[in-house]
Structures are given as structure tokens and as C-alpha cells.
Computed example of a mutant assay.
Amino acid sequence: MENLNTSIKGKHALPAMDGNPHDVLVVIPTYNERENIEHIVNLALDSTKRVHVLVVDDGSPDGTGDLADAMAARNPRIHVMHRTGKQGLASAYLQGFEWGQAQGYTYLMEFDADGSHPAAKIPELIAQLDAGAELVLGSRWVPGGATENWPLSRQLLSRMAALYCRIWLNSGIRDITAGFRGYRADTLKTFDLSRIGAAGYCFQIEMAWMYERAGLPVVEVPITFVERVHGNSKMSGNIIIEALWRVAAWGIGYRSRGIQHVVTGK
């Protein structure tokens, strides 16, 4: 996986599998998140001793990658992947997953660097994977889920996006766009991820629907999603347009085949 555009720093030993095993890799993509990254990584590490963190930095001009390197030099549970240029959310996660699989981690998790995902919920997502879930989502739109500091317009946009996906994709997942999630690494290996076409946040929809179509157990855990305090959101009009046309195209292509509703959200 390491190529001309990618380098990794940190202690690259395989995760320990006895005592307090470090069998969970939390992948955190970054681009200009210097104000957030140290706090967010520490929250993830403090949530459970099972966690290692991989920061995937796309050459942040603000020095996020350098700060992550300094953290990794002090803590063997932190690893850093440096990529040349802004290559996007989907490829950051996919390269992070590939590295995690090669290192032998049991579970692979997605986590935002902006503070919107509650790190205190990481153990609950891990518990669902331990119990047999193949994919677990931190969901805003199941009973007990919520958002904090979101304007009404943002809530409506997110809810409408979720409904749009449920209708077009005949999906039972309430928050299919959720970016706080965990996968079983061995199951993820069985999919041809080179076929994933979405580049932005639509990647989350494509990955979750892939699991749902395969009939694999998907669990939604309620979380409170908090609006970022520092930095700027990476959401853009192009990302929304991509999601609209891709979801419609997927729905037209697969509607006649049908999919199983396998979600067992709380």
C-alpha cells in the first residue's frame, strides 16, 4: 500500500492479542485539523485500551500531519499516514482500512477529526461488533439519537437525505450517511473495495448499502452528534450533488432486485 504518494510513521508492531488487546484501529482522516487533532485522538485512546489510532493526513498546510507525528513519537498507540495532496475522504478510509488489515486489527472504525462524534460511544460500538454485528453505525436518527448545536436547516437537510436514501435504496438503515462506524476487518476483506465509486460523503452510503444488500447484520447505536467548534466543515454543494445522482442511479439499477432489511438498531 505504501507508494510514492503515501508514507506511514509510528510504531508499526502488530497489535497485542492478550491481556488488554489493541485490536481496534480507529481511522481519522485529516485536512487542516491542527486545532482539533490532539484532543480528538486522546479522546479516542482514552475511550478503551483496545484502541489504536491511525491519522490519515492529506498534506495539511496547517501542520496537522507534523503535530500527529509528534504525538506518534510519544505514544505507540498512534500511527500516522501521510498522503500527498487532498485525495478525499473515501480513499483516506480505504487506505487506512488496508493498512489496518495488513497489521492484523480485528475491527476498523471511522471517526471524524472535528469533534462531532462522541468518543465515549466507541466501547458501545465495539461491544456490538463483539456480539456479532458486521457493521455498526453511530446513528442520529434512531430513538435516543440526537444532534447538538445544529440549525434547523442542517437537521432538515440530514433527515431529508436519510429519507431520500431509504426510499431510493429500499433501505432499512435510519442514518445511512453516518460517518461514525465500525467494521469487522475479516468481513471487509471479502468485498472488492476497488469497485467503490463514491469519493465524498456518499462513500458512507455506498459502504453501508453494500453490507445491507449482502444480508449482513447492521446495527445502529444512538449517538448525539455535536457540531464542530474549531475549523471548517468539509461539506460542499458538489458533495450533495454527488449523493443525489449516485443514490438515484443505484436505486434505479437495483430496485427490481430488492434487498433484505437486516438492520437491528436499538
Rank of each mutant, 00 (worst) to 15 (best):
E134H: 06
E134W: 03
L135Y: 02
V136Q: 00
L137M: 09
G138H: 01
R140S: 05
V142W: 01
V142R: 09
G144R: 11
G144V: 07
G145L: 09
S153T: 09
S153K: 10
R154Q: 14
Q155F: 01
Q155V: 06
L157W: 13
R159Q: 06
A161T: 13
A161W: 13
A162N: 06
S171F: 00
I173F: 11
I173C: 02
D175V: 02
I176W: 01
T177A: 02
A178E: 03
A178L: 09
G179A: 02
G182I: 03
G182F: 00
R184C: 06
A185G: 09
D186M: 08
D186G: 02
T187P: 01
L188E: 00
F191I: 09
D192C: 02
D192W: 09
S194F: 04
S194L: 12
R195H: 12
A199M: 13
A199C: 15
G200N: 07
Y201Q: 08
C202L: 03
F203E: 14
E206L: 12
E206H: 15
W209P: 01
W209C: 13
M210D: 00
M210S: 08
R213P: 05
R213A: 13
A214H: 10
G215W: 05
L216W: 04
P217W: 11
V218F: 03
V219Y: 05
V219C: 06
P222W: 10
P222S: 04
V226K: 04
E227M: 11
R228L: 14
V229W: 05
H230D: 09
H230I: 06
G231S: 01
G231V: 01
N232W: 12
S233F: 14
M235S: 14
G237E: 09
N238E: 04
N238H: 02
N238Y: 00
N238C: 04
I240H: 10
E242A: 00
L244Q: 13
L244I: 15
A248V: 13
A249Q: 11
G251S: 08
